[in-house]
Simulated scan of single mutants.
Amino acid sequence: MKAATGLGSTTIYKLMAAGDFPASYQLAARAIGWHSGEVAAWIDSRTPTPWLQTDPKTATAAKPAVSGIGSLSAAPPRPGAK
């Protein structure tokens, strides 16, 4: 999820706890994932900060790539997890 959103794990979990990020799904005993369509919608709903905005006449802003629309994206196990 870090690659798709540009956010770190701690920020993602804080946003989830606050209800400001899509909920994760339990994939296995020690694996979670997110529905990539929900994450893509969340990314699209975010208002860009002024320092990220570009002049449309001179540049285009790229959206983060989210692969597998309609599938679950697995998060890697946390360090130290057995």
Rank of each mutant, 00 (worst) to 15 (best):
M1S: 01
M1R: 00
M1A: 02
K2F: 03
A3N: 04
A4G: 01
T5V: 00
T5S: 01
G6M: 02
G8V: 01
S9C: 07
S9E: 11
S9R: 12
S9N: 10
T10F: 01
T10R: 06
T11L: 06
I12C: 07
I12A: 05
K14Q: 10
M16K: 08
M16W: 04
M16H: 08
A17G: 11
A17Q: 07
G19F: 04
G19C: 02
G19M: 03
D20K: 15
D20Q: 15
D20V: 01
D20T: 07
D20I: 01
F21Y: 01
F21P: 01
P22N: 00
A23F: 04
S24I: 02
Q26M: 05
L27K: 03
L27D: 09
L27Q: 07
L27Y: 04
A28M: 01
A28V: 00
A29W: 02
R30I: 00
R30S: 05
A31N: 10
I32E: 05
W34R: 00
S36F: 04
S36W: 03
E38A: 06
E38P: 00
A40P: 02
A40Y: 04
A41G: 11
A41I: 08
I43F: 04
I43C: 07
I43Y: 02
I43E: 01
S45W: 06
S45E: 10
R46M: 13
T47R: 12
T47Y: 01
W51F: 14
W51L: 12
L52W: 07
T54V: 15
D55H: 05
P56L: 07
P56Y: 08
K57V: 08
T58E: 14
T58C: 08
A59M: 11
A59R: 12
A59V: 10
T60Q: 14
A61Y: 12
K63W: 10
K63T: 10
P64Y: 10
P64H: 11
P64D: 06
A65T: 13
G68Q: 02
I69G: 14
I69H: 13
S71H: 12
L72G: 14
S73E: 14
S73P: 09
A75R: 12
A75W: 07
P76S: 11
P77E: 15
P77L: 13
P77D: 14
P77C: 13
R78D: 11
P79R: 06
P79F: 03
G80F: 03
G80D: 02
A81P: 05
K82W: 08
